[in-house]
């Protein structure tokens, strides 16, 4: 294996800037998509535990649709196919005037996909509490909305902190798929450095380290938070 080592390439102009900007894009895509995934996922997850057949059906359809199509195919659907399906004016607007089209598409796609996974965790959390608590709340005269707000949700969110952490890490890793529609995030920049300099080993090592640092930091932080949020006498769990 003959290979010209040159670790200096990583701190040279403009490659260092490329890595930094790639890293910032990775973080922006992941955080923005996570906000969408968490809010929508909570709504869908709650819908799947209600007594309404219609809401449960919609929730199930949502989850099954998004879980059973590869993320990359979804990315292409949003980027290439979705604008074609809109009415002409709206389609034109998406194609021509949507601000930061690649970034926005990546965030929407990742967010909607991960929402289906978050929904499963939220549902598992609520179901883990059991029917008794719900009935007790209703018997006390709380409305169904109040039962969720004051009885079910506060407990279930505390139970599902660990699986939600791993969902966040999944979205963080999946943000690399944004490169397929042209977002120059960490992996894309590493690849670009390799193509420009042929220093693939150094470039990919840098990207790998960035991912590992973030993953380990998040895990460490969440361990601390988990310890504080843990409900005594209850083991944490998640949906598989």
């Amino acid at each position: 294996m003959n290979y010209n080592w040159d670790w200096g390439v990583l701190i040279r102009e403009p490659y260092f800037e490329w890595l930094v900007s790639g890293f910032l894009w990775t973080i922006s895509v992941s955080v923005a998509a996570w906000i969408l995934a968490f809010s929508l996922g909570s709504v869908v997850g709650i819908a799947r535990t209600t007594n309404s057949k219609l809401l449960r059906g919609i929730g199930t359809c949502y989850v099954e649709t998004f879980r059973n199509i590869p993320l990359l195919v979804q990315m292409f659907l949003w980027y290439f196919v979705f604008p074609e399906l809109l009415p002409e004016d709206a389609g034109m607007w998406v194609k021509r005037e949507l601000p930061m089209p690649e970034f926005t598409t990546a965030v929407v796609c990742l967010g909607l996909y991960t929402a289906s996974r978050v929904a499963e965790q939220v549902r598992a959390g609520i179901e883990a509490i059991g029917q008794g608590q719900r009935n007790a709340g209703l018997a006390m005269g709380l409305t169904p909305a109040q039962v969720y707000r004051y009885v079910l949700l506060p407990v279930s969110y505390r139970i599902i902190v660990p699986p939600l952490t791993s969902e966040f890490l999944t979205i963080f890793k999946n943000s690399s798929l944004a490169l397929t529609i042209g977002v120059l995030e960490t992996t894309a920049q590493a690849r670009q450095i390799e193509e420009y300099t042929f220093q693939g080993f150094e470039a990919f090592t840098a990207a790998t380290l960035l991912y590992i640092i973030v993953t380990s930091t998040v895990m460490l932080l969440m361990k601390l938070i988990e310890g504080r949020l843990r409900i005594p006498g209850m083991i944490s769990l998640g949906a598989k």
Binding site: L169, K173, L177, R191, F204, Y211
Partner: peptide, 24 residues
């Protein structure tokens, strides 16, 4: 832990670059 903290795309790029180097 190493492989679980990396995106699959990056792993694919890694081996796409590494395997020819190792095999020669």
């Amino acid at each position: 832990n190493f492989f679980r903290s990396m995106p699959l795309i990056l792993v694919i790029f890694w081996f796409y670059f590494l395997v020819p180097h190792i095999v020669g």
